Simulated assay, not measured.
Amino acid sequence: MMSSGSASSAEGYDESEKKMDYADKVVFVTGAAQGMGKAICQRFAALGAKVVAADIKAEAAAETVADLGDRGHAVACNVADAEAVRKAFADVETRFGRVDVVINAAGIGAVDSFPDVPDDNWNRVIGVNLTGTFLCCREGVRLMQKHGVKGAIINISSTGAVTGEGPVHYIATKAGVMGLTRSIAREVAASGIRVNTIVPGATNTAMLAGIPDEWMQAMIKTIPLGRVGEPDDIARVATFLASEDAVYITGQNLAVNGGMAFI
């Protein structure tokens, strides 16, 4: 009996591993030049995916996929520009014929106190973080539905959207991403498309680079797991949510924050 149980467990493990094989999948990632977006590209590539690295910094995006040969492609894309997003997805369709996974990792912030927020900063942060996510979701869904793809969309929010800690424009966009995810998930579920949000906490990206060390240490003390996140922590969850192992998960906000806030 014990032998039979062990064999069953091994078979289950092997099957799970197969579900994380992205060899025939096309993955479109925004914000691919650095940080979470770059780490997400790298992890999907390691699992065999064809990876499209999209970023306004075209040369840096190309570097992200430089070692992938025909499996890698970079597109210059300002996600806040509807026409640029449309062209980027048209390029993906021309090159690969479909898209299976869309990950919206592009994001910016600005440090402004609420009464002093300039109109330009408000519009810029909203444009990239919220409008950009909407535009890429829309084009991704259109392309998936056109080719009958039962795909996955993963958006990136922030723990600050729950706690309210952060600049008002950034927090507003990240809360908006959560609502956008829920609404799209309900509408496209019948097409077999799943839409979820990853909700990172403090993560070791360019946004943390300018924080004084004493502030950083004080923040780390509030995180039960005792460290800030790494981009690969987010990438690992992205590959899970896009996989068949997550086939019954949609419309959810999954916190990846070391326990700094429970949502």
Rank of each mutant, 00 (worst) to 15 (best):
A62P: 13
A66D: 08
V99C: 15
D24E: 15
T205A: 03
H169W: 08
N104M: 08
G69W: 06
T173N: 09
A238Q: 01
F96N: 10
G35H: 09
A185W: 08
A33G: 14
A190W: 02
G5H: 11
E17S: 06
I156V: 12
G37M: 03
D233C: 10
L143R: 09
N78S: 10
R194Y: 04
G109A: 06
V256H: 14
A62V: 07
V51K: 01
M20T: 10
F44T: 01
D14S: 15
K174Q: 01
V128P: 06
L130M: 11
N129L: 11
N78W: 02
A185L: 13
C77P: 06
G201E: 00
L47C: 13
E11K: 12
G258D: 03
S6C: 07
D112Y: 10
F114Q: 01
T250G: 13
N257Q: 11
K57E: 11
D119R: 08
D116V: 02
T94S: 14
L208K: 06
G107R: 10
T197P: 00
V128F: 03
V92R: 00
I211H: 03
T197H: 00
I126C: 05
K50M: 04
S243D: 04
F89D: 10
F240G: 00
K19I: 03
I234S: 05
A49P: 14
I153K: 03
A175R: 13
G251F: 06
G72Q: 10
R227Y: 01
P200W: 04
K150V: 04
I40M: 00
N253H: 15
